[in-house]
């Protein structure tokens, strides 16, 4: 028999016992699961979910604003009994490009700069996650967030169109095309945003740099296209679309996916289609490559 005395009832009541250290013998998930957890947390974080109340304001507000025009289009169609929506799915992203650019500029630095600036990276690297996992998870997360940012208003338009009993056969093809180009826009913008954010660990600088780059590119594209159209340089006008991520993807959408372009000139023929598609894919690959290089240099 044990000679240990049982604790008296008086000592047991109203006392918080230090139960001592308990070991964890539950499951330990591998690299893939960890990368997925990082992806989910980062993607939700791009809308402020799981972050402070203050960091929810900007993304949520922008998200609401980007959906407003879609609502208006549906409401107008309902009131006027129109036989089509007063706006195109395929030009929606181009029309709200400033909002998308601001969103990316705000969320790309929030996604990666903090870990770099406050030297959290060694804590990731001292865990089973590899550098490439971190980069891909973060890239996928921001891409998914940007895709949701453009796909939700498009989906509002589509569902609204069905509600006002527009024929699904006429609505679906352009809706699907716009989702395809929305995915491309998300990949391209997330790539550009993350590369800039990863080399400017100060968050404010990152925001400013991304928005400047995106708006300046759009501006250059607009000016070049305007002048070229004026001078009847149609080829130059068409290829000027390569300058800005938004017009680049619009070019792919019109030439490869077969949508009507909202721009004055679209890529000429098969060569144009191939050029725009290859530039888009190269841009995505280059962004991932630049990110991998950047993170290889992060010391622990």
């Amino acid at each position: 028999m044990s000679d240990a005395t049982p604790p008296t009832p008086s000592a047991r009541s109203g006392v918080i016992h230090d139960i001592g250290y308990r070991h964890y013998d539950g499951p330990r998930l591998g690299r893939g699961h960890i990368a997925r957890a990082l992806f989910v947390e980062s993607a939700l974080g791009a809308y402020g979910i799981g972050r402070s109340a203050r960091s929810k304001i900007v993304p949520m507000l922008l998200f609401a604003v980007v959906c407003v025009p879609a609502f208006i289009l549906v409401v107008v169609a309902a009131i006027t009994n129109a036989d089509e929506l007063p706006g195109e799915y395929t030009s929606y992203v181009l029309n709200v490009q400033v909002l998308v650019a601001i969103y990316v500029a705000g969320q790309a630095p929030a996604n990666v700069s903090r870990d770099l600036r406050f030297r959290v990276m060694p804590l990731y690297f001292s865990r089973p996650l590899e550098r490439v996992d971190y980069v891909l998870a973060k890239y996928a997360a921001l891409s998914a967030a940007v895709f949701v940012f453009v796909a939700v208003p498009l989906t509002i338009m589509f569902l609204g169109a069905l509600l006002v009993e527009l024929p699904i056969g006429e609505q679906a093809p352009d809706y699907l095309r716009s989702l395809g180009s929305g995915l491309l826009v998300a990949l391209v913008l997330a790539g550009i945003g993350l590369v800039i954010a990863a080399v400017t660990p100060r968050r404010g600088l990152g925001v400013a740099a991304i928005i400047t780059v995106l708006l300046v590119l759009a501006g250059v594209q607009g000016v070049v296209q305007g002048i070229a159209t004026e001078e009847n340089e149609e080829t130059l006008a068409a290829y000027s679309g390569l300058f800005s991520p938004f017009t680049l993807v619009d070019g792919v959408q019109s030439s490869v996916l077969g949508a009507d372009s909202a721009l004055p000139a679209e890529p000429p023929g098969t060569v144009g289609a191939i050029v725009f598609l290859i530039v888009t894919l190269l841009l995505v690959v280059a962004c991932v490559g630049a990110l991998l290089l950047r993170y290889r240099k992060v010391s622990i």
Partner: peptide, 18 residues
Amino acid sequence: IRSRVGYMPEHDCLPPDV
């Protein structure tokens, strides 16, 4: 090894806003 080992670096590694 890294799944069974913990590491505390010498330098600051904490984000201030969480």
